[in-house]
Design a binder for these strands. Structure first.
Lengths: 214, 214, 214, 214
DNA sequence: AATGAATGAGAGTTCATTCAT
DNA sequence: AATGAATGAACTCTCATTCAT
């Protein structure tokens, strides 16, 4: 059903997560897909192009929902999205975070694209936080504080799964903990209005459920 | 002056920071030091041993100061240490954070040592935060909140330099920003007593100085 | 005409005989074939696989004739086969005997296969000798005597060519002498019926022909 | 007590037996002895010299007894010596037989010495067999038969320990089996006078003792 | 679209040997 | 008599990439 190109992409993602992009040879990908190396190079002119295609896929998924947000409405759900959306996607494409720094060094074209996207992400996070501030869900703060709230949000969102995966192999559990990281990170910035909101309380209850039992 | 072994270590650190440990060949290190590959292998039985020796050096520096802390005294400076100490060290050994996940996959012996050290770091961060709470510098919180404050502290401390280096090449500036990340991350947890303390105010003023000018 | 893989095998055999498998580098083989090392590793995943492929070829040739023997018939020719067959093969693959002990130490997978084959060879020699005893060509003996006749047969068959090659470089002459070793080794065990048989007398005459002239 | 030179020799023999001369580095020998590599090269100008010194030691032990034989006396014990003497020595220096062919290829000076010694061994075996024939312990035979009896004797004496060691790891048991190989190899050539001799019967009884019990 | 044979550079590592001290 | 630092060539193996078919 899936085209050869799709198979290459999906197999690459699988292998890159299993043993890192930089430890996966093109031969290995081709073998796993069941095609010849030559054929792989028919679809992608080099390994970096595979990586970039994967990365573009990742961006598209991430941005689809974000661009559909209606910022005019008084929406509390933005926070929830901030916490829970993209969890699945971040798991699927986790190698992109795990070995990011080395990928940037090794693949210059990928670096360029990633740089642009980072700027986008920063803008989006900032816009989202400003939106929540304007509607009174997040406390007011200085420009500096906001800047570093943005960068810290990005850093935690990007690296917390790797942290838990280093400590344990249970990918599903680790994803849940990652979300708790995000939740408790943002909590001190929430206004009383947020904290009183049933939806926020529900999130905390939901997330802590499993964690509690252990 | 420096022994050959020291030269190998220092050159390795330099090259690992420049182009990542995994992209630096033992031959390249030997060339840069000005010795033969054979001689390099006279001092280190393999590449992993070089990495481990560097890592041990890093740990020793980091832990020297930490173990000298007197937890009995009512010390506010712990927070300052938390923010400013080891900055130089973290810069010097930054590749250890930048390519951590791949180093763990590639070098099993290194992984073991790093695992133990992570457990230590978690304990130390927790102890430090508890100390600050008991002296009223950090707000009281639930056990969960503390747990995730610990993990988030580790994640930010470990990854923020990489974040800024991705955006700019000015290593010194990036280090300062990293500290601001830590400062603004911890600020919402500070008590009024902390915020009123002159030393804390001084830190913020000091750190923001340069940032302001741009 | 020959495929690259065949060329690698034939060249390897040649070089292994000339300077021993353990003294022949994969680069040397590639150079001699006229291909790149990378290409050699395209066909064989490591040096041991080349050795094993050669060994399997050797076994196949050796066993082809043996399995075609009809043990039901009263055949004197078995002894002749025992002496003269596989001579050519043993010459072509002589390095397998010459450096056997070191190959066993160095290549664990090869060792396993060789172990199984040794068991087979022992069984076959025993069956053949028992057959000749039952038809009255070889004298009756105790179980012990038979056991050690088997092991001595194997030892001589395996090592006599190396002995003569040590003393002289004339491979063809040495092969003939090897056969005489086998003949005179087995002769004391022959019954009068055998010794009176024209075919046995012919063998001796044939083998001694050249030897005499010197 | 032992001089450094002696220690090097003894350690080398040990290591060469354990993992073959060709797989033992000079560094490994030096480490095991507890000296520096430089010091090892003070005593031996290269690895081949170590090998040669060991080989000379081996020859000296082997020849000491042989040259003390009084061929004028009607001595049956020669056969016994042929079978049982040097067993211990052959075990101690077994690597010399195990990897002989490769040592000859690798070490040209060793090859020369070994060639001379082989000529000596052949002469000695021939003299011994002639002696036994002249005293009626071994059957009369043609010149050809004697020649090949000599070469077969050498081949079996040299290679049977390797054969059994390939099949099992019990060095002591294998040595006993090796002797049985020699005994049953020579038995068909013995005269009735030999077979009736109590001393020969004793040898067989002695050797078969253990073998029987299994 | 697809194959599979081929390349060449480079990786980590080993080792016999040398030599100044 | 002994050290230990140093060399340089060689070894096995990997990998991204190319290209004729």
């Amino acid at each position: 059903m899936a085209t050869t190109k799709e198979k290459i992409i999906e197999t690459s993602i699988k292998l890159f997560n299993e043993k890192a992009c930089l430890n996966t040879s093109t031969r290995h990908i081709a073998d796993e897909v069941g095609i010849s190396v030559g054929n792989l190079y028919y679809y992608f002119k080099n390994k970096e192009e595979i990586l970039i295609e994967i990365f573009i896929n990742y961006i598209n998924i991430i941005f689809k929902e974000i661009t559909s947000i209606d910022y005019e409405k008084d929406e509390m759900f933005l926070l929830k999205d901030f916490l829970l959306n993209n969890l699945e996607t971040d798991i699927k494409y986790r190698f992109l975070h795990f070995e990011l720094n080395l990928l940037l060094i090794t693949f210059p074209k990928f670096k360029k694209i990633k740089e642009e996207q980072l700027q986008n992400e920063i803008k989006i996070i900032k816009k989202l936080l400003n939106h929540q501030i304007s509607y009174g869900y997040i406390k007011k703060m200085t420009e500096y504080e906001l800047d570093f709230l943005v960068s810290n949000s990005w850093i935690i969102a990007t690296n917390n799964l790797a942290y838990w995966n280093f400590l344990s192999n249970d990918l599903f559990e680790n994803a849940k903990k990652s979300t708790l990281n995000m939740y408790y990170f943002i909590k001190p910035y929430l206004t009383q209005k947020s904290l009183d909101d049933k939806r926020i309380k529900d999130i905390e209850t939901f997330l802590l459920k499993d964690y509690n039992e252990k």
